[in-house]
Design a protein around this nucleic acid. Structure first.
Lengths: 303, 303
DNA sequence: TGCTTGCAATGGCCTTATGCTATCGTGTAA
DNA sequence: TTACACGATAGCATAAGGCCATTGCAAGCA
């Protein structure tokens, strides 16, 4: 049984005439005759009662033809769905981002992708780089937003923007009175840090190698998110270092917390989009990149 | 797009592994690979994301596969329905009978066919021989029950039973006192007849050629059915001739109406079943014949 | 590092399926 | 009778669909 044969019987049932039905199927009359016979033999049912003057659908044939029509309709839907799928940007896209990017990027992303790909809902997730990598690899995520360095086989990486770090200080702290903060000065302070696993932690330690020892000695609590750190700074536990995007807007005013840039070479992180090389929706990725780079993140420099 | 290809993608989506999926489809792995690729090319959508370690269904693929599953289900139903249709006696059968047979045969027929073909409802119709012939020819009826003679090309005829005629007489009529009635005696009576078109009318005239002239002279009313004739006989308009099956049971008792056989050679009619030579359900016809011949109609002789 | 393994893709070949044209047999109409 | 229309059949060409053997690639193992 083939879809062609089903089309043949549906058409013949309509036309009740082999030659006309054959024409409508764009085949010759013998082709139709043989195909019909073949299907009847296979199903072992007479679908059409032939008569020199007339072709009639049998009682059993009626039911078969009507079911065949259903099959053809469903098959037509396959093509329809495929056509929709071709657009690539009208299906959900599963996007992950590291904890220190997601909360600040996603709101802008959602807003900016609407006009570009209104039919492409984003399924979002925040997680550690390692978890995101795993989920990208096994297909649970289509694209992830991480911070370099990032090594992984069979993926494409598109750099999105560079984001400077800044120091978050309680307003009454002596350092708050300075325009800029030097790395040397930080080494004498209690620097609140994110826990292990957050790549931002490593990046901060990389940018200010001197602070680790000090923080270890005082065994300060480790933040579970940038916002947690912010709260702890506000409560006077110490100071911290944040990526600039995280100071976009928050609940503390400048009487409580102030941000100060680094003196000298500004440390920064590079945020990138990663997807599987064989991922089948380049248009969806392009839309995502466009939406993110047009975010004009506060203090971020597009690359 | 073929049903085979759809089966392939459904299986591959389940197995996520070409070789295993190929095995389950009873084809070689290359066959599967090529077929999948062909379908993807045709639909112009990547359904599967291949990876050395894994085969994954894409977002668009998910929807296509699920629709493909629907198509296969519906296609499976075609086979199912064909299988049911093969039984031949589990679909309605459209049966017509002449006016002078239907009312007396149908009740028995319905009762008797139940055990033989419980799944085959009968769509019944009463009409003139000519109309039945036409409806049989153009497929509106599957079988008709008529009385011979009947000539028609491309049909099969199965004789069912012979049915004697008898005379219906008001109880107070002089003839009612006789055991039998001769044709000679009938010629002097008012014989009530069915109207033109009823073959029974012709058969009666054939059996008793002498009565026509007489009836014409008195211009008696023509009956529209055997029951109408019976009522008119009861009301004293005359006497009539009926096939024996019609006196099976009715509302008049023997104080009002009596039936009398013919003296001499008993006239009778032969009732037969007719269907198109190419009609595709011989089993249904056989069931019908069996049901009718087992009716043991009162006074009827099976042939 | 090299070797082996497992996977999907590819190439070459064969068989079957599916299509065509030409023709037949048979009822129907002129 | 001829002519015609219809569906069935025969014979042939080609495309589709299948197989086996092999390739290319990545991963795991020694």
């Amino acid at each position: 049984m083939t879809l062609t044969e089903l089309k043949y019987i549906v058409t013949l049932a309509q036309e009740r005439h082999f030659r006309r039905a054959a024409e409508r199927c764009f085949v010759s009359q013998p082709t139709l005759s043989v195909a019909i016979k073949k299907l009847e033999d296979e199903l072992d049912v007479t679908i059409f009662e032939r008569n020199r003057s007339d072709v009639r659908v049998t009682m059993a044939g009626e039911r078969i033809v009507s079911q065949a029509r259903k099959v053809l309709e469903e098959a037509e839907l396959v093509k329809q769905i495929a056509l929709e799928g071709k657009g690539q940007i009208n299906l959900p896209l599963r996007v992950g981002a590291i904890f220190t990017v997601g909360p600040y990027l996603f709101p802008h992303l959602i807003r900016n992708i609407k006009p570009i790909a209104p039919e492409m809902p984003l399924i979002l997730e925040e997680n550690y780089t390692g978890v995101l990598r795993q989920k990208l690899r096994n297909g649970e995520l289509d694209a992830i937003i991480i911070s370099l360095p990032f090594e992984e086989p069979d993926v494409e990486i598109q750099d999105l923007y560079d984001e400077p770090f800044e120091v978050l200080i309680p307003a009454e702290h002596p350092l708050a009175k300075q325009e800029k903060v030097t790395r040397k000065q930080l080494e004498k302070e209690n620097i609140l840090m994110l826990g292990e696993g957050h790549c931002f932690r490593d990046q901060v330690l990389n940018a200010c190698p001197g602070i680790l020892k000090h923080s270890d000695e005082t065994s300060l609590p480790q933040g579970t998110s940038l916002e947690t750190l912010r709260h702890m700074v506000a409560s006077g536990l110490g100071i911290t270092i944040l990526p600039s995007s995280s100071s976009d807007k928050h609940i503390y005013d400048s009487d409580t917390l102030v941000e100060r840039p680094f003196a000298g070479k500004t440390p920064y992180r590079r945020v990138s989009l990663v997807w599987r090389k064989r991922f089948s929706r380049p248009k969806a990725i392009a839309a995502l990149v466009q939406a993110i780079t047009s975010c004009a993140l506060q203090g971020a420099a597009s690359v």
